[in-house]
């Protein structure tokens, strides 16, 4: 672990950990995806568009629900707030008006947390949406940036790097115009630093979207 840490530092911290993704690992859901970023791993499962339960039904669009399941213990306030962030992000890209009165539920299971968990959740959710074939206006990806006390910027930080960091910022970037769909920050940073993080996240997004595209290409290589 220490070796890796130094490796990232030496490269100016601008390095994403190895990514892997498996589409449709689960047989029951309408769509599923396992997304791994280094040691962080999230499994996403999607159901829908399905029948909405009673009061959840919305007359002119699909009701989107995101559930985030921690690995140990029961979901708490932290999970709830992340669910909200994830739901808002998904709602921004899902064309819910095409399925009024329906329910779409996204269930995310944390499999391993090795840092940048929220961005991994975002990526898993987007791949899940793709696998389920829900109509989307664009894609989104999650990028976490950590600001080290020495001022350097680390992309896709590990748990250790997150702990050492002065501030940790996570952004959801959309694929169409690379706009920021969601921002969540922890710790203090200046406005310049924040803009730097957004710029870095936007350039990391290119790499991630290319990864999405390659994964999907591979999946459709046989049909």
């Amino acid at each position: 672990v220490a070796m890796e840490l130094w490796g990232y530092r030496a490269m100016g911290g601008s390095c994403l950990r190895p990514f892997s993704c498996e589409l449709g690992p689960l047989s029951r859901p309408d769509g599923s995806a396992a997304f791994l970023q280094g040691d962080t791993s999230v499994l996403a499962a999607l159901y829908g568009p399905a029948e909405a339960k009673g009061n959840r039904e919305l007359p002119e669009r699909a009701a989107l629900e995101v559930l985030l399941r921690p690995k140990t213990g029961l979901p708490g306030v932290g999970e709830r707030s992340r669910e909200q962030l994830l739901r808002r992000t998904c709602e921004a890209v899902v064309l819910g008006r095409l399925h009024p009165r329906c329910a779409v539920s996204v269930v995310l299971q944390v499999v391993a947390d090795g840092g940048s968990l929220l961005s991994c959740c975002l990526n898993a959710a987007c791949m899940g949406l793709l696998d389920a074939g829900l109509p989307l206006a664009s894609l989104f990806c999650g990028v976490t940036c950590a600001l080290h006390p020495d001022g350097s910027l680390i992309l896709d930080p590990t748990t250790r790097q997150e702990q050492e960091a002065r501030a940790v910022l996570t952004f959801a970037i959309d694929s169409a115009e690379k706009k920021v769909l969601m921002a969540s920050t922890k710790g203090a940073c200046s406005m310049e630093e924040m803009q730097q993080c957004i710029a870095a996240a936007q350039s990391a997004a290119d790499t991630i979207f290319q990864f999405y595209r390659d994964s999907i290409r591979r999946r459709y290589s046989k049909s």
Partner: peptide, 27 residues
């Protein structure tokens, strides 16, 4: 870890090695 347990030959699985991102001009 789990990344190693995903079989490479599956067409539904895809892996990417650690990728460098050009952050030189972010400032």
């Amino acid at each position: 870890g789990f990344a190693e347990s995903i079989p490479n030959q599956k067409i539904t699985a895809f892996k990417m090695e650690s990728a460098a991102v050009d952050t030189n001009n972010v400032e």
